[in-house]
Design a protein around this nucleic acid. Sequence first.
DNA 1: ACATTAATTGTGT
DNA 2: ACACAATTAATGT
Length: 210
Amino acid sequence: MEQSIKSLFPDFTSTELINEIDEVASLRDFEPGDVLIDVGGYIKSVPLMVSGLVKIIKEDEEGNELLMYYMAPGQTCTVSLTCCMSQRRSEIKAIVEEPSKMLMIPIQYMDEWMIKYRDWKNFVMNNYRSRFEELFQTIDCIAFHKLDERLVTYLKTKSTAKGTNVLQATHQDIAYDLNSSREVISRLLKQLEKEGRIKLGRNKIDVSTL
DNA sequence: ACATTAATTGTGT
DNA sequence: ACACAATTAATGT
């Protein structure tokens, strides 16, 4: 246990911190479709990702979604950190995409750990930085690039996040993530296939040649 | 193995 | 964006 925490979260250097995590955290399993946190919700525990994949989306009043970024093993939910520190409600929704395990840490430890453990603070800050970078990239993509380029970026991001070249998704799923329509995605995918950049199949997209 | 049906994908307007 | 056609996978008989 101790070893796996160390290798997953290299930022944790002090044994006191690791021991305390070991003590107060509970390991929980999540299934695809589970909602970690919804818009407007408060949070009671901060998750440390051990395995799996979670997607973070922004949702507007009409229920239109937009993929923000993925949360992968070794990371934490930045939003839940801000939420618990300032007692604010969540602006986003987190949906489990692949069976996942996470260490749940009750939020009452957060304030204390920030002061007590330098390495915890580092971890949180590093996490912030990488999340911000990802977000900037996403914003850049939305603001300055056409949908076809966004789609390519999306496919690349998704395949690295999932660690596979064959993505399991319907055109509709992708359309939701990019806040577009299914027909448009179908046509763009078809185009990419014609260009020989991907291979299409029902419910799957082979991205290995992208 | 075949028919039925639901889900996914393709296309024209 | 909508309507509909075509194709594919899943399921029952």
